[in-house]
Amino acid sequence: MRLAEKAHCLVWILHRRDGLGLTGKACDDGALCRLSGALPVAAAQLIDRPAEIKFPLVLAARKSHNSGRMKHHPDDLIMLFNDLFRRSHQTVLVKGGDEPEYIPAAGPDQPARIVFAHGFYASALHEISHWCIAGARRRGLHDYGYWYCPDGRTAAQQQAFESVEVRPQALEWLFSVAAGSRFHISVDNLSGQGAADEAGFRARVRAMADHYLRDGLPARAARFHQTLLTFYGRQTLFAQAWQDQGLTTSESTR
């Protein structure tokens, strides 16, 4: 049997199997995983081959991603996240209703749940970002032990809100670019006094994202970011896409 035929059969067999997990060495929670720059085309092609084995559901999607407008479905994020972290961190990503929520594990057979709102793709990325930052103690608490101050905040409350949202929104932005999806800065205070400093907040989020790229993402965030790059075939596109996002940021803060 020729190599191409063997590869085709292998992929078909993998499609027939349920629950195939992703491979890869896990990092310690306290470690930082440095991201490499854009890979040469030849190297990216080599990575794409095992990617077909890692992600058996990606084959049809990859063709559409490369030949037309990319589609983003939250079920893809659920598959990728759960394959990465269900066993290693006893945590799953699930669709929810009106409000996002983090529910810690209740036992060996009851994993922690990251619940994202309305089945929205962007909401899933945002909630994953919060989880990637939370330490072990926080992950043992409902909603990481934080009390959410709802929409309608005063200027002082909004300033406090923005200060704790810089890191998760920086990760969300990096995840969005890795997936090729649109990212929107969220000040989340429509019925209150609005953003304390919207331009400044956006600049701080951008600066934090640049810091992560330069010095390393948190370990779990780095694993998920690389998974998105591989799944959506954007290893060679990320560097330029991120630079283009910087130009947009500069224009929006003038």
Rank of each mutant, 00 (worst) to 15 (best):
R2H: 11
A4K: 15
A4F: 13
H8Q: 15
H8K: 15
H8T: 12
W12C: 06
W12H: 06
I13R: 13
G19S: 07
L20Y: 04
L20I: 15
L20S: 04
L20T: 12
L20R: 12
T23R: 12
A31Y: 04
C33F: 06
C33S: 06
R34G: 04
L35K: 00
L39P: 01
P40C: 00
A42C: 09
A43L: 14
A43E: 15
L46S: 01
D48R: 15
E52F: 05
E52R: 10
S64F: 08
H65D: 15
K71E: 13
P74R: 08
L77P: 02
L77A: 06
L80A: 02
L84K: 02
R87Y: 05
Q90E: 12
Q90K: 14
T91F: 08
T91M: 10
G97R: 12
D98V: 05
E99T: 11
P100E: 06
P100R: 07
I103R: 15
Q110S: 14
A112K: 12
R113H: 05
R113C: 10
A117K: 10
A117C: 05
H118I: 00
Y121G: 00
Y121S: 02
Y121L: 08
A124N: 03
A124R: 02
I128D: 02
S129H: 08
W131N: 09
C132R: 05
R137Q: 13
R139E: 03
R139W: 02
L141I: 03
D143T: 06
W147T: 15
C149S: 03
P150I: 02
R153A: 07
A156C: 07
A160Q: 13
E162H: 02
P168W: 10
Q169V: 09
A170F: 10
L174Y: 10
V177I: 15
S181W: 13
R182T: 14
I185S: 05
S186G: 07
S191V: 11
G192A: 09
Q193I: 11
A195L: 03
D197Q: 08
D197A: 12
E198L: 15
A199Y: 01
A199V: 03
R202Y: 06
R204W: 01
L213R: 12
G216W: 00
G216N: 02
P218Y: 09
R220P: 03
Q226L: 10
F231M: 05
L237D: 06
D244R: 14
D244W: 04
